[in-house]
Structure formats: structure tokens, C-alpha cells
Design a protein around this nucleic acid. Structure first.
Lengths: 275, 275
DNA sequence: GCATGTGAACCCCTTCACAGCC
DNA sequence: GGCTGTGAAGGGGTTCACATGC
């Protein structure tokens, strides 16, 4: 039915981000952060090798990732930092920024409103709501906590493109349902429970306990392979290893090994219900 | 050198969690949460199908995951909830619980101390530190913020097994280096930058902006495939869809589609530096 | 000469289907 | 009969190595 000949149609071959691997999408976000740092430092051109080291991946993977966006570099030279940056922002749909509404003004919710990292990367928190009379009306980082009962009105008025759920887990599904009913299509939840939503709605979940449990397992795994790590922890004085000023691009290898396991990666897309 | 014939040796075939896929480890943590809910509800036996639905995966994947831990169920019957639960806790190294120290008492750090989800899943926050004189000495959820200058003493005294970094990104590497020097082997960082650490140290990173950017992209992708989602958001009154009481096991399929993209998945293990 | 872009091999993970066991 | 456990098939992502183009 309707075979969808992917005729790009529009002027200037824009889209075709039909099938970019999710793993790649996650890394594009990382590259973006590094590119922003480079731009701030006045770097104009960067090679795949340099960018890759700064982002903690290998250069072949980086080039493959970027190749999904079409040609973005100049052979024998490298990538134009500004151009690549705006290309990635364009593909990720970040060009016009995002308006974020937060549901749940507990510890975590209030912390996120004040978190500068969002604003810096183009996400503006435009509203925060809660059901607890004790916090409704409370000012938080320039916003006032609104009653979640006026969620419909708040959504209509603030026109958020993304919603973040930071309510207790037994309230999460309810909030999610209502957000969906009011038109939200992108939801990030911190509640440690599965959320069901229509297939057209994108729901991502961040479970902090899961992250810690994975850390826990890796320690078990490592301890099993290595015989005895001589685990004498902090005794008296230890050699500080502070400086090593990193000017964004820290080319040469460190005595350490880059081992940041960035949490990210969706799982099954589409229907998962009983077949 | 030393070919390591994996002779299980010890009594009662315990370990052999040598090569459990990381993807599986991430899901084991999820299963654990569901099993805890079931146990609270007094459920004693659960089938792979039921557990899978509750965890948002398909049953074949769940059985495959559990098979890495050895036989844990009874054919024709299902899994013993209590037994399976303690088996997974054992494999993940959660049996004795974990002591967590937090570095960075900003909005996020203080929020995490108060977050009940950790304690409930066996992670006890035993200390929080910061460098800002304005917050040092401040009481936070039963703890007092200590000076990060006494990090060595705090680590020696509190004996944490996991450290969480919630400092601004330009201080993160420094804090990480010191934690490693003081013997920490498992680190979870919320700073949006790569951290370098010895290969023996496990570093995981949670980047909230990346999660949002992935949401952003999926919206672009969906919008591209679907012609026009008729995006008339919250107008006046909308049908509330609240109740649907879920008694932990909500067997039958919902009108919705389970679409929780749980964030999780490490990337490359081991050396990533220039070869 | 040098760095990008990419086909192909490789590996990990998911999915299927069924054998095995209660 | 029913449900677990698992070999085998399939797909997605990573790595390699080189062709391509400045």
C-alpha cells in the first residue's frame, strides 16, 4: 500500500535521514557538543581523527556516522567546524530549539529546571507543574510551579515540544497519558517503570538505578577476570594528578584509557505487545 | 600467558558471568525491578510471557537473557519470583548493597541524595561533598555536605563502592582523577564530557541533553515518514484516561503500544586511544 | 600526499522455531 | 499440555581497508 517512493522533492537535497542508526544518532549529539567546544575555541577545521579522539570514539566510526548525513568534509583537509555543526543540528531537528515542560516539581524536577546544561544546548524549560499544594506556586529558577490540573491549559499556552516526567512512578503513566492526549509527541521519563503510549509518540526513559546496577555488574565482571586488584583504597596521602589542561583538542594519547560508556541506545521500535 | 581454563572449581557452580552481553545486563536490572513489584504483590510464580510483558520486552528475549545465568525456571511452570530475584541480584553484585558517595552538591547532586529510588533498590548514599563554601556544611536529606578537599579522608572513612559525579563539566575530570586515585572503581558521571580513566575503572555517563536530542531527532524522523499528524494540540477539554489500575501484572494488551526506549547501552570496551 | 567516504567482512544481538522437560 | 532453554537464522552496527577526490 502506497509504496512511498522516497522522492526528496524539496529544493536542496535536504532530508533523507530515513534510516540513520539510533546508535549513530546518539553519537551525533556527542559530536555536536565537541564541535561547540571547538567553535568556542576558535577552531575552524577539524579532522576525523581529532574529532574522534575528543568524542571518545574511533575515527572510522565517526566518518561512517557522518556519512549518513551526506558529504560534509573536504578530502585531504577535514571538516568545517561551523558547517558540520549546523548540519548536525539541522538533522537532529535542533535548529529552532525546543520548549520543554516539566511535570513533577520534586527534588529532581526542580533540579532540572535549574540545570544550565539544557539552556546551553538549546532546550528552554518553559513550565513546571505538580499536584502537591505545598509546591504549587513556589518559584523555581524564574518559573512558578503550576497546578498539574491545568496541564491542558499550560500545554496550549506554552506550546512545548518536549515533556519531561519527574513524578513518582505510580503517577507516571497517568501523566504520560494526559500529555499524549494534549498533543505531546516526545516524552522523557525519569520514573522507573515502563510507559505505554501510541506508536507515534516517542518515549525515552532514564533509569538511574539501572545505570548504577550496570556499574555494579561491571565491577563483579572485572573482579572475576583480574585475580586480585590489591584493593587497598584511600590510605594516607595520594599523588594528585590534577592539571593536564585540556584545550578542547587533546591530541596525544593519555596514560589513561578512554572508557566512558555513555548511556544511550533505544531498544525495540514498534509493536512489542503480544503477537 | 596463563590460559585460564575456566574451571568453575568452587562449590555450587556459581559464577561464569564472563560473557553476558551488556544489553542483557541492562535488561536484567529492569527484570529485577518488575520482580520486586511482583514479590510485593505476593506473586510467587511468573511465566516468561508475563514477566516479559511487564518489562516491555518479548518473551524470547527474556528467556535468552535469563539463560545466561544458567537454568532458573521450571519447564511447564515458570520462574520462582523470589529465587530468580535473588539470583539476578547475586549476578549483578547487588547482594551486599552499595555505598554511594556524591561529589557535587549543586541542584542535581542534592536532588539525587533525596531521591528515594536509590535506597529502595539497594543503593545508600553515604556522603556528599562540594567545593563551594556556600553549600559546605549544609544539611541535605540527613547528610551534611563536606568539603571536597577532604575527599581522601571521606573515602577512607565511608568506604563507598560507587561514586557519582555531579560537578560542572570543567571540574569533572579532576574529580574523576582523584576518585580513581583514592581507590574508586565505579563512577557514574552526569557531566557532559568524556572522562578518561584507567581501563580497570568503570565509568558510565548520563547525558541528559543527549537524551533530549535523540527525542528531537525521532520527532523529525516520524514527521518525515507520516504525512501530516494533524497536530492540533491541547484545545479545550480532553478525555481523561486515568484509572486502568495496573496490578503489577497487566496481562492483556493495551490499546497503546509499548514504546519505552530505555536509555542504556555502553559502547566500546577497552582501549580506544590511538592505535 | 592526505583525509574523506564507503563497500565488505566481522561480530554482537535479536528473533524464530523447536527440542527438552515438567 | 505447557513453558523453559537453546541452536540456528537473520539484522544491525562496528571495523577494516581501500578507492576516491582535493
Amino acid at each position: 500500500m502506497t509504496e512511498q517512493h522516497e522522492a526528496p522533492g524539496g529544493v536542496s537535497g535536504r532530508a533523507l535521514q530515513k534510516d540513520i542508526p539510533q546508535a549513530t544518532v546518539a553519537r551525533l549529539a556527542t559530536y555536536l557538543r565537541v564541535l561547540a567546544m571547538l567553535a568556542d575555541d576558535g577552531v575552524a577545521i577539524v579532522s576525523s581523527e581529532e574529532l574522534a579522539v575528543a568524542a571518545g570514539v574511533n575515527s572510522a566510526k565517526l566518518r561512517k556516522d557522518l556519512s549518513f548525513l551526506g558529504p560534509n568534509g573536504v578530502r585531504g583537509v577535514g571538516y568545517d567546524v561551523a558547517k558540520l555543526r549546523s548540519r548536525i543540528e539541522d538533522v537532529l531537528g535542533l535548529s529552532q530549539g525546543h520548549r520543554v515542560v516539566l511535570v513533577g516539581a520534586g527534588n529532581l524536577g526542580r533540579a532540572l529546571v535549574g540545570y544550565g546544561g539544557f539552556q546551553r544546548r538549546g532546550f528552554t524549560v518553559v513550565g513546571i507543574l505538580d499536584s502537591d499544594p505545598a509546591v504549587i506556586g513556589m518559584p523555581v529558577a524564574g518559573l512558578v510551579v503550576r497546578d498539574v490540573a491545568e496541564l491542558a491549559a499550560a500545554v496550549a499556552e506554552l506550546e512545548p515540544t518536549i515533556a519531561v516526567i519527574t513524578v513518582p512512578d505510580d503517577a507516571a503513566q497517568d501523566v504520560c497519558d494526559r500529555l499524549v492526549a494534549f498533543g505531546l509527541q516526545s516524552i522523557l521519563s525519569f520514573a522507573p517503570c515502563e510507559l505505554v503510549a501510541p506508536a507515534t509518540v516517542e518515549v525515552r526513559r532514564v533509569d538511574l538505578a539501572v545505570e548504577m546496577q550496570m556499574l555494579s555488574f561491571e565491577r563483579v565482571r572485572n573482579a572475576e577476570q583480574a585475580p586480585l586488584p590489591v584493593a587497598h583504597a584511600g590510605s594516607g596521602r595520594i599523588a594528585h594528578r590534577l592539571p593536564t589542561s585540556h584545550p578542547a583538542l587533546q591530541h596525544s594519547a593519555t596514560p589513561h584509557t578512554a572508557t566512558s560508556h555513555t548511556a544511550t541506545e533505544p531498544s525495540s521500535k514498534g509493536s512489542v505487545v503480544t503477537p
